[in-house]
Nucleic acid binder design. Structure first.
Length: 686
DNA sequence: AGCACGCCGACT
DNA sequence: GTCGGCGTGCTC
């Protein structure tokens, strides 16, 4: 008799294990691993969706088995390697595998499934041959023979990217079998020769992916956001046939994601490129996992079980014996830790390249334009000279025009009359609007002194652009910020004002770069300010033309000299040593426990001895609950996760009615939930 | 979650 | 004796 072992699709932690169901004769021929099924749970009549994990001959379960009710679809959406990964990811984070599968398997799309089944019925056509071109300049800066050997040896690397741009030779050998006209030009636009400048990092990762695909194996490439993805895909198209590149990202519609996920289950070797979710895509023969800029906060998953993409990558590379590459301009302290314990091997550019970074603490003269006051005269002169020859980048901290407004009379922060949110201005002429509810501040008056006029506090990208426009008459000014992102600019002289992370790519690189607002960026209260700044600045520095001057304004000390001498790993190593001393992450692991006082206290008591002595709190948090932070060493991680998991289950299955005599006596009440979140750095910032 | 099982107090 | 309220525990 066939037995289906299934994972029930439910958030209940007590059901997070496999259940056995008998397969009735009429389903036996069709059922298989990875399919979605419906199964009865507890009592006939109640049905639950489930994934078939395996089909076996006998069950260990004593007692009669219920029968699988129905096969929802014969399309195997859950690949075995994804199941294995989901289980490990959930276990590491004290969470449920079904929560991970929710992220890994997009919701069903019947039309896409029909197409897929029809295509499969037609018979698998042999994959197209692979005319892989390995552009030698793409790995320039590294010894490419070493990289190829490292891939073959399944090495784990911390790769420091060369902070330069590279121009790709257009579609070098990457013939598109489906017709080369796929690079769509928007209707009405005159076709311009494509700007094929990308960060060198993108060309390097693309080459590693091409080497992997040439061996008949998949490569998974993760990027933080769409801007990086655009560069990486451009670089990939130069070395891998377009038909072998599969995107998986948040911008796609559900059917697109579903189609991509099913394609990844095919036989041909592919490059899978996308945001953090791409690390959960099916990939049976996996040769390489590469993560670009792992310090970017977009890699921390906001949904339960909150597993960071870096950890997913580490687990998966281990499970599937794939090569692993963490690449970035600035290393994260997490990667530095892995280097220092010998888990990752560092790969430095050879020959070494040092960008021309000029730090200065000195502020500009206060005469002249307001923007002038933020810019030291040396930087000003350098920008003025450089803009004759091409674009100059100015990086600022805040988007908009005036990120903050205050009453002109009493100086109190200007607040929305409807919801008390802070007001801000997006354009110089715009009516101020509330940052929270969006309401326009029409007929505003100060709630402290009844005055009706405001003044700006701080300077956004828009205002900086206005001021620079006046300072450089006749020069084009381009603004790129969070809401209006520009990915590429052309060669023309221009001042490009961008908020950190929104810098466009310029052909050949910027002729000069001014990093303003450094002081303000460093003022953020967070455990990771220094490494965040290092990342924001080094990513911008990498957009400069060869040896073009980069002025880092208002920053001194070790951070500035690390950038000036381009010895970022040394700085990060010192940073990590400080954290080790203070026992802060990533030197140690942490878990936050949130819930009612009694539940949190019980969970703390259940911890292993060593961890119990390193509990911060519990402290009150909004919502009538408390939060405790536990610190422990990596070696204890598995123990702590297992113990906390059992506490979560206990909390969920314990008495759900309030004790006798209380006000809601007899009424059903939400279970006394315990929320566990591992490796959350939020509690260490504010 | 949602439902059955079983253990004590009040009933024909 | 047995009806039913409510607390406890399980779900193949």
């Amino acid at each position: 008799m066939a037995v289906a072992r299934v994972l029930v699709d439910t958030p209940l932690p007590q059901l997070d294990r496999l259940f056995d169901y008998a397969v009735p004769a009429k389903l036996a021929a069709d059922i298989g691993p990875g399919m979605r099924v419906r199964v009865p749970l507890r009592t006939a009549g109640r049905m639950a969706d489930a994934f078939v994990v395996e089909v076996v001959d006998t069950s260990e379960h004593e007692g009669t088995l219920s029968e699988v009710d129905e096969i929802i679809s014969t399309v195997p959406v859950l690949a075995p390697e994804v199941w294995r990964l989901a289980r490990a990811v959930a276990d590491r984070a004290g969470g449920s595998a079904s929560d991970v599968l929710r992220l890994a398997v997009p919701t069903r799309q019947v039309r896409v499934e029909k197409q897929w089944l029809a295509a499969r019925a037609e018979g698998a056509s042999a994959p197209a041959p692979l005319p892989v071109v390995t552009a030698p300049e793409a790995v320039a800066g590294y010894r490419s023979t070493d990289l190829r050997a490292a891939l073959r040896a399944r090495a784990r690397l911390a790769l420091d990217a060369v902070p330069l741009l590279v121009e790709l030779s257009p579609a070098a050998g990457a013939e598109d079998p489906e017709g080369a006209g796929a690079r769509a030009t928007p209707p009405g636009d005159t076709p311009t020769p494509p700007n094929l400048w990308v960060g060198r990092w993108a060309a390097t990762l693309a080459t590693l992916a091409a080497m992997t695909v040439a061996e008949g194996e998949n490569a998974i490439l993760a990027v933080p956001d769409y801007r990086d993805q655009e560069q990486l895909v451009t670089a990939l198209e130069a070395v891998v046939p377009r038909a072998r590149i599969v995107r998986l990202d948040a911008k796609q519609s559900n059917p697109e994601r579903y189609r991509a996920m099913l394609r990844a289950r095919g036989d041909e070797a592919l490059v899978l490129v996308g945001n953090r979710s791409v690390l959960l895509a099916p990939s049976e023969r996996l040769g390489l996992i590469a993560v670009w800029d792992d310090g970017d906060p977009l890699y921390s998953e906001p949904l339960a079980p909150y597993v960071h993409a870096r950890d997913t990558a580490l687990l998966r590379a281990e499970q599937q014996n794939a090569a692993l590459v963490f690449a970035g301009h600035a290393r994260s302290t997490d990667v530095q830790r892995l280097v220092e314990i010998g888990w990752l091997i560092e790969v430095l550019p050879d020959p070494r390249y040092q960008p021309h970074v000029i730090p200065t603490m000195q502020q500009g003269s206060s005469e002249g334009f307001a923007a002038n006051a933020r810019i030291p005269s040396s930087a000003w002169a350098s920008a003025k000279a450089a803009v004759e020859f091409g674009p100059v980048l100015v990086q600022v901290a805040h988007p908009g025009y005036a990120p903050r407004l205050a009453c002109a009379e009493c100086g109190d922060v200007a607040r929305c009359l409807k919801c008390s949110g802070p007001l801000q201005k997006h354009d110089s002429g715009a009516v101020p609007a509330c940052a929270w509810c969006g309401a326009l501040a029409v007929g505003w008056h100060c709630q402290t002194c009844e005055n009706t006029t405001m003044r700006s506090i701080g300077t956004g990208a828009g205002r900086t652009a206005d001021e620079l426009g006046r300072a450089f008459p006749g020069v084009k000014v381009v603004v790129s910020d969070g809401s209006r992102q520009i990915t590429r600019v052309d060669d023309e002289p221009a001042i490009v004002v961008a908020t950190r992370g929104a810098e466009p790519v310029a052909p050949g690189g910027y002729r000069a770069i001014l990093l303003l607002d450094g002081e303000r960026m460093l003022a953020r209260e967070s455990l990771r300010v220094a490494e965040d700044c290092l990342r924001w600045w080094s990513d911008a520095i990498a957009l400069a033309a060869h040896r073009a001057p980069v002025h880092l304004v208002g920053v001194g000390g070790a951070l500035a000299s690390a950038l000036a001498t381009w010895t970022l790993p040394r700085f990060v190593s010192t940073e990590l040593a400080d954290r080790r001393h203070l026992r802060f992450p990533p030197a140690v692991r942490v878990a936050t426990l949130t819930g009612q006082t009694a539940v949190v206290e019980k969970a703390v008591d259940a911890l292993p001895e060593a961890a119990r002595h390193e509990v911060l709190g519990p402290v009150d948090v909004p919502g009538g609950t408390v939060r405790a932070i536990v610190r422990f060493d990596y070696a204890q991680g598995a123990d702590v996760a297992r113990l906390l998991r059992s506490q979560v289950i206990r909390a969920a299955t314990d008495r759900r009615r309030p004790p006798k005599g209380s006000r809601d006596d007899g009424r059903r009440v939400a279970p006394p939930t315990l929320r566990v979140r591992f490796d959350d750095v939020e509690p260490f910032s504010d």
